Amino acid sequence: MLDAACARTRALHGPGRLRLDLAQCSGLLQTLALHEPLEDRNAFFAWLFGEVFLKVNGIHMDSQPEEALALVMSTGHKNASVQEIAAQFRLRIITI
């Protein structure tokens, strides 16, 4: 599933190494939230994957667990767009 999420992001944003981009991270989170790769705890997994992706690229966020869950749930159940997810990430950035 992680390979598929990364492949979707590459297809949307071009070939080559994944570069830091909030839209790319949002696309990864969206793919994982929509396709639920695990038997349980998919929302947690999708958020954790997105947060780790950003941290690896030097971006740290400040968010409460309730906010993170609401963002992932809006992605999976209300079909939030990649741009809407990226906007929510931008609101929570504390360092770049």
Rank of each mutant, 00 (worst) to 15 (best):
I93D: 01
V56D: 05
I59T: 10
D62F: 09
D3P: 08
D21V: 10
T95I: 02
I96T: 14
I59S: 03
T9S: 15
H35F: 06
I59A: 03
T75Q: 03
G50R: 00
R19W: 07
F45N: 04
K78G: 02
L22F: 12
C25L: 11
T31M: 04
R90Y: 01
H13K: 12
E66A: 15
F49G: 02
C25K: 00
L32F: 07
L22M: 07
P65N: 08
L32S: 03
E51M: 11
R19Y: 04
A43Y: 02
E67L: 09
P37H: 08
E84D: 15
F49Q: 02
T9Q: 12
T9G: 11
S74D: 15
I93T: 02
G16M: 01
C6W: 10
P15C: 09
D62I: 04
D62E: 13
R10Y: 03
R17A: 13
M73G: 00
I59Y: 03
A23H: 15
M1K: 12
A46N: 03
M61R: 08
D3I: 11
A5W: 00
L29T: 07
A7G: 14
L91W: 03
T31A: 05
S81E: 08
N42L: 04
E36V: 04
A7Y: 06
Q64T: 11
A43T: 07
L54Y: 04
E84Q: 15
P15I: 08
T75F: 00
L91C: 08
L12Y: 07
E36Q: 15
R90F: 01
T75N: 02
A43F: 01
I93E: 04
H77R: 11
S81A: 14
E67V: 12
M73C: 06
A70S: 12
G27P: 00
S81W: 00
L32D: 00
L28Q: 02
F44C: 03
S63V: 11
V56F: 04
E51D: 14
K55S: 10
L48H: 07
R10P: 03
F53L: 07
T9N: 03
A87I: 06
A87K: 09
G76L: 06
L20G: 11
G76E: 09
H13S: 13
Q64W: 13
V72H: 00
S74F: 02
M1P: 12
I59N: 01
I96H: 13
A4W: 05
C6M: 13
L38V: 11
T95W: 01
R41E: 13
L71A: 10
E84M: 10
T95R: 07
S63Y: 09
H13I: 04
I94G: 00
V82L: 07
R17Q: 14
L29Q: 04
C6F: 14
F45T: 05
I96Q: 15
A86H: 05
I85C: 04
E36T: 09
D62G: 07
A5I: 05
C25E: 00
K78S: 14
N57Y: 12
G50L: 08
L29N: 00
Q88W: 13
I85T: 03
L71Y: 03
Q30N: 10
S63E: 13
G14M: 12
L2Q: 08
R19F: 02
A33G: 09
R17K: 13
D62N: 13
P37M: 09
N42F: 02
F53P: 01
